[in-house]
């Protein structure tokens, strides 16, 4: 049976993993390769490396991190952040990434999804969406949640699937960073609307949150960052717990 995936997310700035809360208070955590290796050994099913370096000149440092990860980590990993073009896709895939996630660049130019899917295959095009509920309707946001694009979440997700995305990461801005649980209802609704895997993001604080989003939220995978980085949740015990909760989970 296809297993539910647990995915630690590593934000990388100037070659180091950092974790901010609600896009502020950034602090240094660790070396991305060492941390990636450690998570892989503890049973992470995939990893996400997100480039939060602002300047384009420092892109080389990030690509170097991607290359080193590919050499030392033998589980799949996705790379995101600052992906604007097919050329950016090519560079990170060449460096060894398995999948590439696009967010705001796809919002401003949706055909980027088509171009990348045709060139590299649907399986490596991950559409990452930041969403927020406004007056009972879900909208797609960009710029760290400051700008409402006016696109509705479900329409955008369906368009992304039609254009060739192989997976969707849905980050709910209201629950992100506050550790009160994922937004299970919107995840379940999205799962209803599209026929590609859904990765839930934003809100993990306790092991029960993972169980709920994978069961009620019907997500195929759950992504989290700080709970792993700061040791609040141990990956191994989390997976053991989910296994005991009758979820299909890969152990050992």
């Amino acid at each position: 049976m296809l297993a539910k995936r647990i995915i630690p997310c590593l934000d990388v700035q100037d070659g180091r993993v950092v974790k901010g809360k609600k896009f502020a208070d950034i602090q240094d955590v660790a070396d991305p390769v060492e941390l990636g290796k450690k998570y892989s050994e503890l049973g992470a099913d995939e990893l996400v490396f997100y480039d939060i370096t602002a300047s384009h000149e420092k892109r080389g440092i990030f690509l170097d991190v991607v290359e080193r990860v590919a050499e030392e980590v033998h589980i799949p990993f996705t790379v995101g952040g600052g992906i604007q073009s097919v050329e950016d896709f090519r560079a990170v895939l060449q460096a060894g990434a398995d999948k590439v996630s696009v967010n705001s660049a796809a919002v401003s130019r949706p055909s980027l999804i088509d171009e990348a899917a045709v060139r590299f295959g649907n399986q490596c095009v991950v559409l990452s969406i930041d969403a927020k509920e406004v007056d009972g309707e879900w909208f797609v946001f960009v710029k760290g949640g400051r700008e409402n694009t006016g696109k509705t979440l479900f329409e955008w997700a369906k368009e992304g699937e039609r254009r060739g995305s192989g997976e969707i990461v849905l980050n709910v801005m209201d629950t992100d960073g506050v550790k009160q649980g994922y937004h299970n209802e919107v995840m379940a609704e999205l799962s209803e609307q599209v026929n590609i895997p859904i990765v839930a993001s934003g809100g993990a604080g306790q092991v029960e949150h993972f169980r709920d989003v994978l069961k009620q939220g019907r997500a195929d995978a759950a992504l989290a960052a700080s709970v792993f980085h700061f040791g609040e949740i141990d990956l191994q015990s989390l997976k053991q717990y989910l296994y005991e909760q009758q979820l299909p989970i890969r152990l050992g």
Binding site: L2, Q123, G166, N195, A221
Partner: peptide, 10 residues
């Protein structure tokens, strides 16, 4: 089925 078949399977 969800396609691609993506992830860990037995």
């Amino acid at each position: 089925l969800k396609v691609p078949h993506m992830g860990w399977n037995q």
